[in-house]
């Protein structure tokens, strides 16, 4: 039977953002990674192109995490005190496409490390792995504004991805990114208008649009995932309909949200069945992949493996 065809053709596409810089471009990365560029809704490959596969990053902390459950720590037990070795293990053993270096030592309520410590860590990690890196601060505005510029300078020319820029605090970070040739994570609280607002603010500071990655704020499975999912769908539809101010690729911090949930934590405690927590992380990630995620940060090596396999299936590779 001849059936009518209902193919969508969109006016526009998602912007491409390049992460990392090879020696020819003034960096020391072994390769660059491009995210974004979709001209179709997620994985409807007969209607448009998905030129770049979603990338999977893993978290690397600059101090040993004090709130990861026992079984979640296990795969990292031998490297937990050494961010360089940790990063290496994620890339070489667990297959991470890139790493997110979290400068948790800067937490004013923890070690309260200063800019010098951070600079050294950033340099060590850059030396240990040749993939592009994401750098985020401890999440305290004042400390972020102190540490991230130092990190930006220490990684100058490497074309990293730095965050988080929020509506109330973006100027220092935006300036540091532009001065040192980095990309920026624009974070907004699960709201399409606020997402656009942060992108506008950054654009007004002359941050090029193809240097911005959207963090829509991640709600974990069972903890508001549907809000993030629907906001991402709406933002992506907007991008395909040529709203340039929301046409940037998405980043989702899946691991930290999924492993904060009661269910995942309990599963990773002694005697628990961590496969539940891994499923929690995987399904959170899958949900976002199908809302258009371009870059996912995960925690457990098994999640990385499974999600990369799913991406292979989707991309037909």
């Amino acid at each position: 039977m001849a059936i009518p065809v209902m193919k969508e053709s969109w006016q526009s596409k998602v912007l491409e953002v390049v992460l990392g810089a090879t020696p020819e471009k003034g960096g020391t990365r072994g390769k660059t990674i491009t995210i974004g560029g979709e001209s179709t809704l997620p994985y409807l490959l007969s209607e448009g192109d998905i030129p770049n596969r979603p990338q999977v990053a893993m978290e690397v902390w600059d101090i040993a995490p004090d709130n990861w459950e026992e079984q979640l720590m296990e795969p990292f037990a031998d490297v937990i005190e050494d961010p360089a070795a940790w990063a290496q293990k994620c890339v070489e053993e667990f297959g991470a496409d890139l790493v997110q270096l979290k400068l948790m030592s800067g937490d004013p309520e923890g070690e309260d490390a200063g800019p010098e410590d951070v600079e050294e860590t950033v340099k060590k990690v850059l030396k240990a792995v040749d993939v592009p890196i994401i750098i985020t601060g401890p999440g305290n505005e004042e400390k972020d504004n102190l540490l991230l510029p130092a990190a930006a300078e220490a990684s100058r020319g490497e074309n990293c991805l730095l965050g988080l820029a929020i509506e109330e605090n973006y100027r220092t970070l935006a300036a540091a990114c532009m001065a040192n040739g980095h990309n920026i994570i624009a974070t907004s609280p699960i709201d399409i208008n606020l997402c656009k607002q942060v992108n506008i603010l950054l654009s007004e500071m002359d941050v090029p649009k193809n240097r911005i990655v959207i963090d829509p704020t991640t709600g974990a499975l069972g903890y508001g995932i549907e809000y993030t999912y629907s906001i991402m769908e709406r933002i992506r539809l907007g991008a395909l309909q040529a709203d340039k101010m929301i046409a940037m690729p998405f980043l989702n911090f899946v691991g930290e949200e999924a492993w904060r949930t009661k269910e995942a934590r309990e599963s990773a405690q002694e005697g628990g069945d961590i496969r539940l927590g891994i499923s929690w992380e995987i399904l959170t990630a899958v949900n976002f992949i199908h809302a258009g995620s371009d870059l996912l940060v995960l925690r457990h090596p098994d999640s990385v493996k499974q999600i990369k396999e799913h991406i292979d299936v989707l991309m037909g590779s």
């Binding site: 539940l276 499923s279 929690w280």
Partner: peptide, 20 residues
Amino acid sequence: PDDWKTFPLLILRQNIYTDP
């Protein structure tokens, strides 16, 4: 029929079918 994967799947279903 593993419980450790079915439970998160049922939660995903509940989340997606929640009336916005």
